[in-house]
Each structure stands twice: as C-alpha cells, then as structure tokens.
Design a protein around this nucleic acid. Sequence first.
DNA 1: CAACGTACTATACGCTGTACGTTATAGGCA
DNA 2: TGCCTATAACGTACAGCGTATAGTACGTTG
Lengths: 226, 226
Amino acid sequence: MARTPRNTLSADLIMRTAMALMESKGISAFSLRAVAAELGVGPMALYTYFRNKDELYDAVRDHLMSLLPPVPTGEPWPDQARAVCRSLRSLMLQHPFLAHLLASRPLSGHESARVAEGLLGVLCGAGFDAETAARTHTTLFTYVLGSTSWEIQMAAERRDPDAWRQLRASMESLSAQEFPIVVSLAHELARTTGGDEQFDYGLDLLLTALQLKAGHLTTERVRTPS
Amino acid sequence: MARTPRNTLSADLIMRTAMALMESKGISAFSLRAVAAELGVGPMALYTYFRNKDELYDAVRDHLMSLLPPVPTGEPWPDQARAVCRSLRSLMLQHPFLAHLLASRPLSGHESARVAEGLLGVLCGAGFDAETAARTHTTLFTYVLGSTSWEIQMAAERRDPDAWRQLRASMESLSAQEFPIVVSLAHELARTTGGDEQFDYGLDLLLTALQLKAGHLTTERVRTPS
DNA sequence: CAACGTACTATACGCTGTACGTTATAGGCA
DNA sequence: TGCCTATAACGTACAGCGTATAGTACGTTG
C-alpha cells in the first residue's frame, strides 16, 4: 500500500503549514483537517506532535512573537516604549489572526516572556517601581491588544461588501433627533477609526501621562511623538 | 401528532434563552441546537426569528448594551467619562461572554449608538473638536475592551486548576538569567493583573492626558480619581 | 368551508475535533 | 544479514456543529 514515508512531518513543519493556512483562509476557516490535507496526511497524524488544536495555536502564537524585534537602545524611554507597542501592533496587522490567538489564550512560553522582559526593562529603566512597572506593562499591552484587534475587526468588515453596506445603512438610519452627535460625527467616526494616527493618538495619551507620573516633565515639556 | 403549540416562540424569548445558556455554559459551549433543546423545539425553528447564529449574537449583545446606565449628569466631564467606561467594564465582568460578542462582531444597532452618543456627548461637552472627540471615543472604548477582555481571560484561566498550575509552572521555569526582570517581578505581575485598580490605573492615565490636552489643567492640578 | 400564509418539523449534508485500535516502517541490535 | 521493537501515520468512528431544503399542521382570513 502506498503509504506516506515516515518522518516527513515535524512540529515545525506543521506549525508553518498551519500559519500559512491562517494567513490565506483566515482563522475562522482554519481546521486541523485542512492542515493535514495540505500536508497530504491523515488528520490524526498531527496528534503525534500536538496534543490538540490549542497547542497548535500556541505554537503559532509563540512563533509570531519570536518575530518581534528587540527593544531599540539609546533612545529616551518613551520612544522605546512606543517602539515596542508599535512593533506589536505592526505584527498583529501583518498577521490578523494573531489578535485572536492573543485574546483567546493566556500568554505563556519563552517568546512571550521575552517580549514582556523588553517592555518591563524599559519601564524599570524609566524609574518606575515594581508595582507601577507591572501595572504599566499591562496597561500598554492591553491597549495595543484592544485597539489593534478593533482595527483589524473593522478592516475585515470593510472588506466584506455586504456587511459594510449593511453597517453604513444601519448607521444612516439612526434618528438624528435621538442621536444628534453620532449622526453629526458619523463622518469623523468612519474616517478616523483605525489607522496609525488613531493608534498613536491613544498611545501618546498613555505615554504623556506616564511621563508626568515619572516626574520628568512639566506640562510645557511633554514629549510629542517622534 | 403531539406538536408544540404555535406562537410560543418569539425573538425575545429566544434571545433570553440564548443569553441564559451563555451565562451558564460559557460562550464556547453555546450552540443553536442547545437553545432549541432548551425551548423544546427543533433547531430550525429558530430560523423563523433569526437568519443565522450571528444575528442571534447581535441580539444578545444589543440587549446587554441596553442595560448600560445613562451618563451621570452634574459632574465634571472626566468623572462622567470614567463612569461610562466603568459601566461598560462592569457589564463585561458580569457577563463574560460580552467580551467575545463585542470583539467578534462590528458594533451596530440602536443600543450601541446610544452608548456612543453618551460618551461622545461627554467629550464634546469637554470642548474637544469633532475629530478629537471621535478619536478619543475610540481610544477609550478600545482600552476598556482590551483591558477587560484580558482580565476576563485571566480570571477564566485562574479558575481552571490545570491550566493555572501549568501557567505558574511555565513562569517559574523561566531562566532568571535570561529574563531577570520578569522573574523578579513575577509576583507583582501575578498580583496586579486585573482588578479595579489595574483598570483604573490605565483609565486614569488616559483621562489625565486628556485633561491636559483639553487645556483645563496645569501639571499641579491634574484631577486624581474620585 | 376552503384557501393561504406562517410556524414549526424532519431529514440531510458537509463540516468539525478527537478517541480508539491497527499497521507498516525505520533504526538498533544480535 | 535478519529480526524486534518503538512509533509514525492510518482508518474508522462518534458526537456535535450550522444550516439548506422540503414538508406539515395550524390560525387567520376570505
């Protein structure tokens, strides 16, 4: 019987195939059976290398996290923090399914620790105490996660013509009497949602307040974005 | 043939049953068939009232949004904004599946507009121009979404003893040489993740920076949380 | 009383993740 | 060289999913 030769599979090959499928078909259409078919193998062959689907998700997530660049050196700490946050956002935009992987599974593993170490190092270098550094790390991380996930979601919606038309229609049908501000700002809301500017706007709010807290600044000397 | 009497179903009844199932079994175990079984009805009966599962999701989400209290009046705008954000977080904590509903579907519908109207009203009242109000609304909304989703995710992880032990183990196995800060702050990270304090910390950063931007404050007069 | 629209049922299809038992092969050892 | 064993990959099966399609009984209306 023509059987697949042995040892052609590996955890790494499976993870890369899985990631390629997520990129091309999207995370919602991703399935173990599709990965197996792509590899010319039965679905159960994957279970030699991963205990279940979630473990494969974790492997993909950790691989993506390993692509994050190191923290830049020789810059003021707010610029370093901004760079870390922008890197993560950029990676999420490049691999939209990463938003789902980050939100639906706890952070664990070597690569996630590496990323945390980088940002925590920046914050400790800025003079924050342990508790504040930990809180700040969580705040920045969740801001990046939330705002970029939202951006990705919006972009996906805009790509589907039906959903997009329906969304516009439901917005335009809102009563200007009941929701005067939403209606009058509808254009601004649609225009400003997402994008680098929206992201940097919120990020700079956080960094500005952090600089104040660090006591390095007076109001007049708040650093503006690079 | 003993057939279910007619007109016992309604969109509202189905939506409430669906919500009850999400509360009790969790969003991942939620299925149309379970809703139908709970109502003593065939799965296809639901399709008389909802075109598909996503429409039912939207109905549940809109119902939850309708539970949000109105914006308090007679307070300074930062306190109003804080109240709106805290209300949303509180609702998400009370109904953990709401995080999933908000993140996976676009915001649309009457109730979402009502919530947006409230926060935008606060921001316009603070003197922000249209673009800044829109950007600020998005920033605050995504911060609440991201940070609360993360908190819910962490809390769920902590509730599952196996996953929690595994997470602690993977953290403790990290090399103190490679990740000195993560290891030394492990306790802080575990202790400070989630909770009102963590949420308010980030929210106050944003509100502080916004007050600066609004020009109502000098550094010495930044409002502290109520 | 008949006809019609509607609320619900029945059946079925093509998926999903994965538990279980089997089989063929590659590598180590005699 | 030839066998043994560990294991990589297979096949089958199950329980479940969303939903397309077609059919049936009922309440209302003419």
